[in-house]
Design a protein around this nucleic acid. Sequence first.
DNA 1: AATTACCTTCCTACTAGTAGGTAGTCAAAA
DNA 2: TTTTGACTACCTACTAGTAGGAAGGTAATT
Lengths: 195, 195
Amino acid sequence: MKSMASTSEKILDIAQSLIVTGGYNGFSYADISAAIGIRKASIHHHFPTKADLVSALVDRYRRQAEAGLTFLREQASSPAEQLQSYMNYWQTCIRDASLPFCVCAMLASEMQMLPEEVASRVRAHFHGLAGWLASVLQAGVEQGLFRLDKRPEEEAQVLMASLHGAMLSARAFSDPGLFVAIVAPQIARLRSPDC
Amino acid sequence: MKSMASTSEKILDIAQSLIVTGGYNGFSYADISAAIGIRKASIHHHFPTKADLVSALVDRYRRQAEAGLTFLREQASSPAEQLQSYMNYWQTCIRDASLPFCVCAMLASEMQMLPEEVASRVRAHFHGLAGWLASVLQAGVEQGLFRLDKRPEEEAQVLMASLHGAMLSARAFSDPGLFVAIVAPQIARLRSPDC
DNA sequence: AATTACCTTCCTACTAGTAGGTAGTCAAAA
DNA sequence: TTTTGACTACCTACTAGTAGGAAGGTAATT
């Protein structure tokens, strides 16, 4: 009985996949309406305005991301494997096209014209991800596994930018393999030479 | 008399800045119309369809980019300085907000829903930029200035992804300085240790 | 047990405004 | 005189959003 998703969840599912392919202005209530067989007005019942809908969408995405990252921290044995697993997660999403781009990266590219309530949530996701990466790098340094040229926070920014840039290139060239080809060397170069 | 830009150039100027902030679906003929004081129908005279307009826009952008990159190759003395100058160019664009994002990077994020005539041009820009970067890296290796872990083409992809990711982060955090903070270390690490 | 009231979800039908695009006109320039 | 570049006026389709109501479930009141 777990597969029975509520209507509002279905709305968010569709909206998310539409945003990932076309951004904030790339979808409409009518698109969602057609996709799940419900009238436009019914979607407005669940999410009065588009800003409400996308805000709820980003909130859910952030909760899922945070849960996933926490799981990785607890599950994967070493910081190096945590980064590897995170990369593998995205590799799978891109390969099977289930989520071929980060929702917040997509929205960030349109940052200047997003409703403020959405923009602030997108910023929060960037902060959260950068923080997680920095803490993983920090742990790796403490365990003598990583050798960083800069402070963990700065290296985390470099790594996050590589991740997003790699998603963009994979999309531009329609080549899912390009994502790993770009990200893997960036993770590899962090490894301390003596291990 | 050189400052007297033609109407079609003015249309492309406005459209470019609108695309850079909001993407393909983030602007309309009415927006351009209002910005340059001309009727919508007059814009259709110059560019019959939106796909025509954006195609012409990307063509012009690609010509300018190619000219700029060729100039850098001829002007800057060493491959290292060529990369540095390219980064500085974008730093200036981002700082003064004249072009705070690459037109083609913006469009690439919406790749899947672009008209094919636009999509192919965006892909061509990615190929061209990756090729230029690869040739600069290749030259650097031949002159003993760079020490690469991988083939120049692969390193070029890594570098290009960092550039685009850095633009995105700078935008997400509204922090122009973040662009250089991310890209500079990526260029620095290419340098051969013995020089 | 039946009534009352409320809540949720979805519906039809509508609005004002915007989207990209077209037809036909007209003045000035080539 | 033909071409260019602008115009007015219009079209159809779609945009986000609203009004009001029907159907069903829940829960307390009578």
